[in-house]
C-alpha cells in the first residue's frame, strides 16, 4: 500500500515497507520523507513507529512522531481503529503520539499517514573550523536558536576533524570541525549560508563550502551514509532543546506495568 495525497503532502503507507523503499517511491515523485532512521534505511517503518526511532534529519523535518499525522491502529486486544489525518487537535491526548514509541503496548500501526516534503531545491555542505568543542557547540546553538535548521550537523574533534579535512584536501589545522548540511529552496539556502557566517563573524570562524561533486560525495558517504549514528541523539539533542534519551521514570514504568496487566 502506498498512496500519495499531493495537495496535503501526506503519504499513506503500509508500515511494513522499509524506509529505503518508501524514500525511493517518494523521490520518484520529487518528494522526500525527511526521515533517516539512525538504525539505517533498511528498517521497516513499523519498527520506527513502534520504537520512535531517532531521525538523523530531525532538525529540519522533526522526529517520526511529528511526521506521523494519522493512520490505522490495532490494539494488543485486537481492537482496530482509525486515527484521522489532521495537522493538530486539542481534543484530549494525542492518540498518534501516545501509540508511537509504545512498542506495541498501546497499539501498532497497520497503516501510517506520514508528512512528506518537496525534495530540497538546493543542498549545501558547510564546514566551520572552531577553536574548541564549546565554541563549536555555541555555533550550533546560534544556528538552531536563529531557526536555521540544517538537515544534519556533526561536531568532529581533532583526529576525526583533521581526517575529514585531509580527505577533502584542505590544509587547515583545526581543533574542532563542525560539519553541517543545509537544504531547501535555493534562495533560503543561500540566505542561511550568509546568516551562519554573519552569526559567527565576531569569533573569526573559518568556513569552507565544499561544492565539487567529489567533495560532496565524500561528505555524504562519510557523514550520512556510512556513519554509525546511534549516539547521534545523545550528542545533539540538547542543542535542539531536547533531552537525550533518559531512563524511564517510575511513573512511566508503573503505567507500563498496568497496561501489561490490563491491555487495551
Amino acid at each position: 500500500m502506498f498512496h500519495l495525497h499531493k495537495i496535503s503532502l501526506i503519504a499513506v503507507v503500509d508500515p511494513e515497507m522499509r524506509v529505503i523503499d518508501y524514500e525511493q517511491k517518494l523521490n520518484a515523485e520529487g518528494l522526500t520523507s525527511g526521515y533517516r532512521p539512525v538504525t539505517g534505511m533498511q528498517t521497516p517503518l513499523s519498527a520506527c513507529l513502534a520504537e520512535r526511532t531517532a531521525n538523523l534529519f530531525f532538525l529540519k523535518y522533526g522526529g517520526i512522531e511529528e511526521l506521523c499525522v494519522g493512520g490505522a491502529v490495532v490494539t494488543p486486544q485486537g481492537v482496530a481503529f482509525p486515527i484521522k489525518d489532521y495537522p493538530r487537535a486539542a481534543t484530549g491526548c494525542d492518540l498518534r503520539r501516545v501509540v508511537i514509541g509504545s512498542r506495541g503496548l498501546l497499539g501498532q500501526f497497520r497503516e501510517g499517514s506520514l508528512k512528506v516534503f518537496p525534495l530540497p531545491e538546493a543542498l549545501v555542505w558547510g564546514l566551520a573550523l572552531f577553536e574548541g568543542p564549546e565554541a563549536a557547540l555555541e555555533g550550533v546553538r546560534r544556528m538552531v536558536g536563529s531557526f536555521i535548521r540544517p538537515l544534519f550537523v556533526r561536531i568532529m574533534e581533532e583526529k576525526e576533524g583533521s581526517g575529514l579535512l585531509r580527505s577533502l584536501n584542505l590544509s587547515e589545522e583545526a581543533k574542532v570541525v563542525l560539519a553541517f548540511k543545509l537544504g531547501g529552496l535555493k534562495g533560503m539556502v543561500e540566505a542561511e549560508r550568509e546568516a551562519v557566517m554573519k552569526l559567527n563573524e565576531a569569533d573569526n570562524v573559518l568556513f569552507h563550502w565544499p561544492v565539487r561533486p567529489a567533495e560532496v560525495e565524500v561528505l555524504d558517504q562519510t557523514l550520512i551514509v556510512r556513519e554509525p549514528c546511534l549516539d547521534f541523539w545523545t550528542k545533539y539533542a540538547p542543542l535542539a532543546g531536547r533531552n537525550p534519551a533518559s531512563p524511564a521514570t517510575d511513573g512511566e514504568e508503573a503505567l507500563k506495568k498496568y497496561l501489561r496487566e490490563n491491555p487495551c
Partner: peptide
C-alpha cells in the same frame, strides 16, 4: 501520586507528556 514525565522524543517509551497534555 506525584508523577514525573521525561522527554521521549527520538527514543522509545510511553510519551506521558502527550497523555497529560490536553487531559
Amino acid at each position: 501520586e506525584i508523577v514525573q514525565t521525561r522527554d521521549v522524543e527520538n527514543g522509545d517509551g510511553l510519551d506521558l507528556n502527550q497523555i497529560f497534555t490536553g487531559s
